[in-house]
């Protein structure tokens, strides 16, 4: 916060959430108000550090005077707004959004919040039928907008596809992608301004892609890992984590997380070192830290190996 802004308090707006009056600073969203009131409002595509895309629609609430439900993450809290977060309509939409995702995407590595919400809304991932088989590599990347082959109704279509592994830094497992746009935003204007990835294709065939589905090392990617930092489902993962998971050596219970400062330049990015068996296995950065809000560059994200290679030299 700048010194000028310090001490200034924004005017408050009063809104009603589930019958309780909540005061939120001007410019706050309905989500802010809901959370201030303590309503456990699920979000998937929302992140404090990114521009809301309001694409997942799991944070919807009932706003009196609005014909449809509204996404709380991006709707400004206007004075006098009356919001309901736990009506049958709201519960139905949240449940269905989660079910639609669970029936089409592999959520096995989704973060803890998501698992909690799935339980709360009693998500039945199977209700639309058995999942379709995985598509072949490149199949989804080659899909054109427009006509598709009619389904037979026997299975529920999924985004299952082989994992993309092209280098020693990242893996991209788009079977786990819920298309929350966070990685695109972090790669683009909200953090890195590299624009190596974007959403391509349309409808259910929409996917995160480089130009012409080129390998990341052929793209504009600068391997900052900020896309991985914001991915909520494990679709984007460090190769170091992926490899350990594949061999069964990934053990979060045994990991210790230590916060320190990046050894490279003078920006002062905070690093959260995930250490397992005296080895760094993953580097993240706290999103609530004012220096870079969770974002790093390639050196901070991957430049740590030198501390571990020393006995050989």
């Amino acid at each position: 916060m700048s010194d000028e802004a310090k001490g200034q308090t924004l005017p408050l707006v009063e809104v009603t959430v589930d019958g309780e009056t909540v005061r939120a600073p001007e410019g706050a969203t309905l989500l802010d108000a809901c959370r201030a009131k303590g309503a456990d409002t699920p979000t998937l595509c929302y992140l404090e550090t990114l521009t809301p895309v309001n694409a997942c629609r799991v944070c919807v609430v009932e706003l009196e005077g609005s014909r449809t439900l509204v996404p709380s993450c991006s709707r400004a809290a206007h004075p006098g707004a009356v919001v309901h977060t736990d009506t049958p309509r709201v519960r139905h939409s949240r449940k269905l959004v989660l079910e639609l995702l669970a029936s089409s995407v592999d959520l096995s590595l989704a973060n803890g919040d998501m698992k909690r919400w799935m339980d709360y809304y009693e998500v039945d991932a199977e209700k639309f039928g058995p999942s379709s088989a995985s598509t072949a590599a490149g199949d989804r990347d080659g899909r054109r907008p427009g006509h598709h082959h009619a389904p037979d109704g026997k299975t529920a279509e999924t985004v299952a596809q082989p994992v993309k592994i092209h280098d020693e830094m990242y893996i991209r497992d788009y079977s786990k992608c819920i298309l929350c746009y966070k990685c695109v935003e972090a790669c683009g204007e909200d953090a890195q301004n590299t624009f190596a990835i974007a959403v391509a294709g349309r409808g259910f065939d929409a996917r995160i892609s480089t130009e012409f589905d080129r390998r990341l090392d052929d793209s504009a990617c600068v391997y900052c890992g900020n896309c991985i930092g914001v991915c909520p489902t494990g679709a984007l993962m460090f190769k170091s984590e992926y490899d350990r998971r594949e061999t069964g050596e990934w053990n979060e219970l045994q990991q210790r997380v230590t916060r320190t400062v990046c050894p490279y330049c003078g920006v002062g990015c905070n690093l959260d070192l995930h250490v397992q068996d005296n080895e760094i296995v993953k580097v993240m950065s706290p999103i609530d830290h004012s220096v870079t809000h969770g974002h790093l560059c390639i050196k901070g994200r991957f430049g740590w190996q030198f501390v571990q290679n020393r006995e050989e030299t």
Partner: peptide, 28 residues
């Protein structure tokens, strides 16, 4: 299903499921 832009979940996946359900109704 063809024309959904794919941005939001209810429409992107909902239109797919709707078509699948209708196919199921029609076939079975």
């Amino acid at each position: 299903r063809d024309e959904s832009c794919g941005q939001c979940v209810p429409c992107r996946v909902g239109t797919v499921r709707q078509e699948e359900l209708l196919q199921r109704l029609a076939r079975d």
